[in-house]
Design a protein around this nucleic acid. Sequence first.
DNA 1: AAGTGGTCTAGACCACTCA
DNA 2: GAGTGGTCTAGACCACTTG
Lengths: 236, 236
Amino acid sequence: MPERFSIQPLYLQLRDALAERIASGEWKSGDIIPNEVDLARELGVSQGTVRRSLDLLESEHVVTRRQGRGTFVNDPDSQAYRFNNFRLANGAAAPTDASTLDIVMAEASDSECARLQLITGDQVYRISRIRSHLGRAFMIEGASLPAALFPQLVERALQSHRLVEIAQAYSLLLGNAEERILIGTCSPLAAEALNLAQGRPVLILDRVIKTRNGRPAEWRRAECVLNGMHYKAHFG
Amino acid sequence: MPERFSIQPLYLQLRDALAERIASGEWKSGDIIPNEVDLARELGVSQGTVRRSLDLLESEHVVTRRQGRGTFVNDPDSQAYRFNNFRLANGAAAPTDASTLDIVMAEASDSECARLQLITGDQVYRISRIRSHLGRAFMIEGASLPAALFPQLVERALQSHRLVEIAQAYSLLLGNAEERILIGTCSPLAAEALNLAQGRPVLILDRVIKTRNGRPAEWRRAECVLNGMHYKAHFG
DNA sequence: AAGTGGTCTAGACCACTCA
DNA sequence: GAGTGGTCTAGACCACTTG
């Protein structure tokens, strides 16, 4: 019989336990995890409860289940896909390249504290990146990441500073994102980086991505021009 | 024993049957629908299967379930909330008013055919609306609705021409929406209606809302200025 | 106390994939 | 044919709401 360690339903505890085993690297991207019957026996719960927690993890984009084959841990690339919402005129996802301009560590500003749920004195990494599509730069972004979540980020000298790659390197599972979309005129920085005329209107994307546990992992402010693409949102 | 009328799983057939009973008006907005045990007995399936279909309907925003109380049919207002994504600086939903400028019926254009999945010769209603916030007009929208879905729309002289109200009047349940967000300069029409300077940058919102069955119900093109609000999107 | 949805179990059978 | 996830059942018990 399973013990109840908390007031949470078993299937939620189970979901978190399984997510933790994925985050910790016990099961890696692309791996097949044990089948429902084995997991149920190992964990001392019924198969139906295991199923329920796996279904939840699938809805959270952590795993993918395929009838007749098994339950697979999702790739970081499939995660990245969720957060790239630039689309071509035909609706297909626009392939984009990102490159890092700069990384520094600093004390969190007031707005960083507010958006990343930090307290005054906490440290953040500030990353500036530039994204291009078909070789043409169209977006410049400034991202702030809590240093507590990504210790020694600069020292580790990762290949890429896309959040998806960073999260992978730190064994962190990403959750939802909320974005504020505004319209503005380009900053001097953006004008230079993207080769825009002074005062050119830009789309401002202000987004917070949280971890699966609900902890803010990245606050990004971006300015972009669309160059024939559009930005896709989905409601429902 | 339930008969299987199709290859679809029982819980999906059941979900559609229950949705149909709501759409038809048998259960109205705000009503409590029968409890799981009664539904299961009536429909000749197990309680677990009824539960599964009701959980699905809840995830589709058709009903709301409350432990200890019952399962309630959602209001059109709660539906409208899903499709209003203008937010104030503090993140709260911005209350907006909509008023109709004009309605006409016409033969669907090529782009209307494409976006609404119609064929040449089909009829559409074209509605132009203007939205204001705190008494100030900030968005002008042109909506196209398939006439086949909303017969005699003009003749019925509804109070409001917000899609949510129209759908309610026609016993139609709304599903998901997909929106394309672009940046542009205001059209002469928008400049006049919203009192904007020529060439003022605007946010262009191009959205298709589908019914619960996946049939396109409205294609809307809007131009707006934000006046301190922002447009909210959610990913995950 | 009665009634509702929420959790959990145990087990049967089906549909799909692959060796 | 063996192994996987997907569907469906029947029933026990829990948690919450209301009279």
